[in-house]
């Protein structure tokens, strides 16, 4: 049905579109315009989406925001919760711990965001508090709920990437919950529902159109977590017969480590002097 709809859609627009014409009106004898050959082809370096990236608010970096607690939780997963022998149980217990830690981390992020906003919006004289008030608490709780809900699309993504269907469903879902808490929650604390430009910001975030991502500590943490998760699949097929190769331990580890590394990169990137910024432009 969707397909048919599209067809009728394109029929409405009958103008000539360079690059992808759907219909062309030609004279008899057909036009013999001598376009240079190169015109037909995009020059190799050109990118049709090269429009300047929309700038979205970048919170200040801070060493406090490096999520070292993730390393601790990951360590506990392997030692105290013993993920290698009881995957489901350890994932669940780790999830409680992670949720509480991320809640506290969320407070840190919120405070930091408030502070950065205050600095950046000073000129506009916007009224932004730098501390943590009850509205922020509500926002944080809301962010927690949303990031838990985000596990559903994440779960579907895992399935689409090849997670087993029919077996290990619980594990995959727990992994999605972990991923949601690590990647989505801090982002929701930075780009909040209550913000006026929430929609635009998130549209840009979800389509990965973030300027200078390596300076954005929270955003690069989310990206790092995703990349870590992607790379985490590599050891699974190896025939080492280690208990930690079980699904989805390597993805979990990759995501935790990737999150920390991404965050650290963002923190270091934020410290880059402005001059090198111009060089990299």
């Amino acid at each position: 049905m969707k397909k048919a709809k599209k067809v009728s859609f394109s029929k409405e627009r009958k103008e000539y579109q360079p690059g992808q014409p759907s219909e062309v009106v030609t004279d008899i004898p057909s036009d013999s315009s001598d376009k240079p050959i190169e015109d037909l082809w995009e020059s190799p370096g050109r990118n049709i989406t090269d429009s300047p990236k929309p700038s979205i608010f970048t919170p200040n970096g801070s060493f406090v925001l490096i999520p070292l607690h993730l390393l601790v939780i990951l360590y506990l997963e392997f030692t105290y919760f013993n993920i290698q022998s009881n995957v489901d149980g350890a994932l669940l217990k780790g999830l409680y711990l992670l949720a509480s830690c991320q809640f506290i981390y969320g407070i840190l992020v919120t405070v930091n965001t408030n502070r950065s906003r205050k600095v950046s919006k000073k000129n506009k004289k916007a009224k932004v508090s730098s501390s943590f008030n009850s509205g922020d608490l509500l926002g944080l709780i809301f962010a927690l709920v949303l990031s838990i809900l985000s596990s559903i699309p994440l779960f579907i993504t895992f399935i689409l990437f090849g997670a087993p269907i029919g077996s290990y469903t619980l594990r995959t879902f727990l992994l999605a919950l972990h991923t949601g808490l690590i990647t989505v929650l801090p982002m929701l604390c930075t780009y909040r529902l209550s913000d006026s430009d929430f929609k635009v910001d998130w549209a840009n975030i979800l389509t990965f159109q973030v300027d200078k991502f390596y300076k954005n500590q929270i955003y690069s943490m989310a990206i790092g977590g995703m990349i870590g998760c992607w790379l985490g699949v590599i050891p699974i097929p190896l025939d080492w017969d280690r208990p930690w190769q079980a699904w989805p331990i390597t993805l979990l580890g990759g995501m935790y480590l990737g999150g920390v590394v991404g965050n650290a990169v963002g923190w270091l990137g934020g410290k880059l002097p402005a001059s090198s910024e111009q060089v990299s432009e």
């Binding site: 014409p21 219909e23 062309v24 009106v25 030609t26 004279d27 008899i28």
Partner: peptide
């Protein structure tokens, strides 16, 4: 006017 349209040209 006297023209021919080629449908499917694109």
């Amino acid at each position: 006017p006297k023209r021919a349209r080629i449908v499917g040209y694109g």
